[in-house]
Design a protein around this nucleic acid. Structure first.
Length: 179
DNA sequence: GCTTTAGACGTAT
DNA sequence: ATACGTCTAAAGC
């Protein structure tokens, strides 16, 4: 069978303090996948590789990887992204999630309601498949009782990211800001 | 407070 | 058709 004309993805990585971040960028220049911080460069790259059949590694988009890193450490970054090929429902969910402002959280229920659905669990499922953690801030989505909830990279990581954004967490629960 | 139970619904197999 | 999921609400301990 002839060839695989699947779009080629360029993978770039960035390292800080022993943590490796990777992004996969399409030909059009959109980030289509990013990894959470990993302990090795290879792990970070593998995370991207899994989602594409054709790729090359280059430092061309290192700045994007760096921005992902910055977001992890609580810097407010704007990315121009394009939510990739997925079902409508999933897309709506991710779009809604990407609207959550820096330093704030929403619950799964609120996300469901925002798109006129009662599918709370499906929202969780959709978010779990978020290809762009940190960029699409799924870490800002928490349970209705304000406990942190799950996360692809583990609850600890979710908590850390939220703290880096200045969100206060006490005993695993989001603490409303007092000002 | 914690655990179980049933409910709701998109997705993967 | 069946099972599962980053869930919720209600009920019982």
């Amino acid at each position: 069978m002839s060839k695989n004309h699947r779009a080629e993805v360029t993978i770039s990585t960035y390292e800080l303090d022993g943590l490796y971040f990777a992004v996969g960028v399409s030909k059009e220049g959109n980030i289509i996948k990013c990894s959470l911080p990993k302990e090795s460069k290879q792990n970070a790259i593998n995370e991207i590789k899994k989602t594409c059949s054709s790729f090359k590694i280059s430092n061309k988009y290192q700045k994007y990887a760096k921005n992902v890193c910055k977001s992890y450490y609580g810097e407010k970054i704007h990315f121009n992204i394009d939510i990739p090929d997925m079902g409508d429902f999933q897309k709506e969910v991710l779009q809604e999630v990407s609207k959550i402002p820096y330093g704030e959280v929403r619950t799964y229920k609120q996300i469901a309601e925002a798109i006129n659905s009662k599918a709370y669990r499906a929202v969780g499922t959709a978010i779990s498949k978020n290809p762009l953690p940190l960029i699409i801030p799924c870490h800002r989505v928490v349970k209705s009782d304000l406990s942190v909830g799950d996360f692809f990279g583990g609850m600890e990581m979710k908590k850390e990211i939220l703290k880096n954004e200045g969100i206060c967490i006490v005993k695993g629960k989001i603490k409303k800001k007092v000002d």
